[in-house]
Computed example of a mutant assay.
Amino acid sequence: MIRALIFDFDGLIFDTETIDFETWGAIYASHGQVLDHAQWIVGVGTRGAFDAAVELSQRLGGQPSAEELRELFVGRYRTASLAAPLRPGVVALLQQGRDMGLPMVIASSSDRGWVDGWLAHHEISHFFQGFRGREDVAHVKPAPDLYLSASAMLGVPPAECLVFEDSPNGMRAAAAAGMRCVAVPIPVNAGVALPPVALRLGTLADMPLAEILARVDPAEAPAIIGQK
């Protein structure tokens, strides 16, 4: 039985990941370079696995520096992010979770200030009963620490928590924590191979929460459900 919902943030609720990829892609192109998607995705949902600024600076012989490239990125990224909406179905699903009395928390490899700022900007902070971020654990995703910490905070066993994730690293973290996972990949990663999950959706608008819960509950459906 599912008794709690745990959500990733970047990419799942608010698609910062696509904005990140497209912004860096434009910066790479302006310097005559191509950002390799396969290389970039290694860093999605975790920290320190790939640094687009360092990679580009190294390709260009150190000029401009990684710090200068990051400054360029931040301005463009911020402008694009402020204009971007939440992903489809997010608010409706959160409302359904609240109406069903399910506690909901966020577990993100980002820091609390980053996530809190965007939750406030989109006026959805009130849906969540807690947060676990990189400052709360020794290891971020794909390690299970964030999800186990969220489970402990809620007082709900991992097997009774349902995770919603967009990145392969996050899905691996959920599996390592012993939690079932609903995969909702961002469009820019639609063709990427994913780890085994309980259910895959195109967006959170694809089906109501009650149906999602019925499909991931082992008493109601197989452990691995086919692609939707």
Rank of each mutant, 00 (worst) to 15 (best):
K228L: 15
A84H: 15
I124Y: 03
G62L: 09
Y28S: 07
N169A: 12
T203A: 11
L72A: 13
L154F: 07
I224E: 15
L102Q: 11
D116E: 14
S65Y: 04
Q58A: 14
R112G: 01
G62K: 11
A210Q: 14
G117N: 10
A52V: 02
D51F: 01
V163H: 05
G170V: 01
L5D: 02
S108V: 11
D206G: 12
L194P: 06
P195R: 12
F131E: 02
G11N: 03
E160R: 11
L93P: 04
L94D: 06
G62N: 11
S151H: 07
P85L: 03
E67M: 10
P185C: 13
K228T: 15
W118I: 12
E123M: 09
A53N: 04
I212Q: 08
I6H: 06
V156I: 15
L5E: 03
F128I: 01
A175H: 10
Q95W: 09
I6Q: 08
R70V: 14
V192T: 15
C181G: 09
T18V: 06
M179K: 05
L213W: 02
H31D: 05
A152N: 12
V197H: 15
T203H: 12
A190G: 14
G170N: 02
A84V: 01
D15K: 04
L209D: 03
C161R: 11
L201A: 07
R3D: 08
W24I: 08
S30G: 00
F73V: 09
E55S: 12
M179S: 10
Q95F: 05
A38M: 08
H37F: 13
D99I: 05
D145E: 06
F128P: 00
G191Y: 09
H37V: 11
G43K: 01
M207P: 04
W118P: 01
V163Y: 04
E220F: 09
A173L: 01
V54T: 14
T18W: 00
A174N: 05
E211C: 10
G170W: 01
V44F: 00
F21L: 12
P218Y: 10
G48Q: 06
D51R: 07
Y147W: 04
G61V: 02
M171K: 09
F164Q: 12
P64T: 11
H121Y: 14
V90Y: 01
L162V: 08
F21G: 06
P187D: 13
E135A: 11
E55D: 15
V115L: 09
P185K: 13
F21V: 02
G97A: 14
Q96W: 04
E67G: 08
S110K: 09
V137I: 04
Y147E: 00
W114F: 13
S30F: 00
D99N: 13
T23D: 05
V140C: 09
H122Y: 06
A143F: 03
A159G: 14
A150C: 00
E165R: 08
R98S: 12
L93K: 10
V188E: 13
S110D: 10
D8Y: 03
A223Y: 10
L12H: 07
T79A: 15
A66Q: 01
V184L: 11
L94V: 12
A210W: 07
E165L: 06
